[in-house]
């Protein structure tokens, strides 16, 4: 029986618990959508926007909790409102976009922290779980909501892939060819907000940026085309979030930091050892030269 393989036991044994199965499902889904959507953020140099949206979801979450709505929906609405406000400040005043982001996201974040701290005095809600993730605490409802979001995000990216590729590579050229770039940009913002919301319980809002950017950045050092970056990045993202889940289970680490440490390590490996861009093994390096000569001889 394959279950008897001894070294697999530490990995398989925890999965007999229903809560671990839920965590695994959510970890895989979040690892994939963060990498796919994050690839767009990386190539458009919008990393800071990902950070802004993720910090901005907190007040929406708190208000939804107070009013008894689905907290995912509240968080999503707050994320979208923050991007609209950033765009509004940026276009209606001489303030630059990064400054507008800094102003809006810290204000939203402060409001969120204040609201949740006030609420958690009387309720079973833990601020730390939203800030740093709590992958072992996902409920069956969380799994359902994450699955809906993941399906929506992946379907949208698949259906709009060629348009989003053109837009993110050459926005002016795309606009000049008649594509509705305003709508494509808005769609991308919605995808980012949805992804952040789905990742809240896994990595937490402070560290979600890492799971958005690092898998794509790792893959970018390994493969040359955007869809390949997304595919390889998804593998990296899933590996990181599942590893983070086990670290959280065995060592009782907060899941967000555990995942981020794994994905950062994977990035460092690619940074040092990528065949095309690696600092130690890329073209023009001595190690790379020996390895390539050796491979050619095989």
């Amino acid at each position: 029986m394959w279950l008897e393989v001894a070294w697999l036991n530490p990995l398989l044994a925890p999965l007999q618990y229903a809560f671990m199965q839920r965590s695994l499902a959510v970890a895989i889904m979040v690892g994939i959508i963060c990498s796919v959507v994050g690839s767009y953020l990386m190539v458009q140099r919008l990393a800071l926007l990902g950070d802004a949206i993720s910090h901005s979801v907190l007040p929406g979450l708190a208000i939804a909790f107070l009013l008894g709505f689905n907290i995912f929906i509240g968080a999503f609405i707050a994320g979208v409102i923050s991007t609209v406000m950033i765009g509004w400040i940026h276009t209606r005043s001489p303030i630059k976009e990064d400054a507008a982001m800094g102003i809006v996201f810290s204000a939203f974040f402060a409001l969120g922290i204040t609201l949740i701290t006030t609420i958690q005095r009387d309720n079973k809600i833990d601020l730390n779980h939203f800030l740093f993730g709590n992958i072992l605490g996902v409920t069956a409802l969380d799994v359902r909501d994450t699955a809906i979001i993941a399906a929506l995000v992946l379907l949208t990216v698949a259906l709009l892939y060629k348009e989003l590729l053109f837009y993110s590579f050459d926005p002016l050229g795309a606009q000049a060819s008649g594509l509705p770039v305003g709508w494509l940009n808005a769609g991308l913002m919605v995808l980012i907000a949805l992804t952040v919301v789905a990742s809240m319980k896994v990595v937490g809002v402070i560290l979600v940026l890492s799971l958005l950017i690092a898998p794509g950045a790792t893959a970018y050092l390994l493969v040359p085309r955007l869809h390949q970056v997304m595919a390889v990045g998804s593998g990296v993202g899933v590996l990181a979030s599942v590893s983070g889940m086990y670290l959280s289970y065995y060592l009782n680490w907060p899941s967000g930091p555990a995942i981020v440490l794994v994905v950062s390590m994977l990035f460092v490996l690619a940074f040092l050892l990528s065949p095309t861009h690696g600092v130690l093994t890329g073209p023009g390096t001595r190690v790379g030269h020996y390895l390539r000569t050796w491979l050619r001889r095989q």
Binding site: R45, K162, E163, F169, D170, S177, L179, P224, R225, V229
Partner: peptide, 24 residues
């Protein structure tokens, strides 16, 4: 105006010229 480090091949870029004619 273009970020030449973008992960795309020559073929990807030329096919962008067909996006609008191809349709959603």
């Amino acid at each position: 105006q273009i970020d030449w480090t973008f992960p795309a091949t020559v073929w990807d870029v030329v096919m962008m010229g067909r996006v609008n004619k191809t349709g959603w």
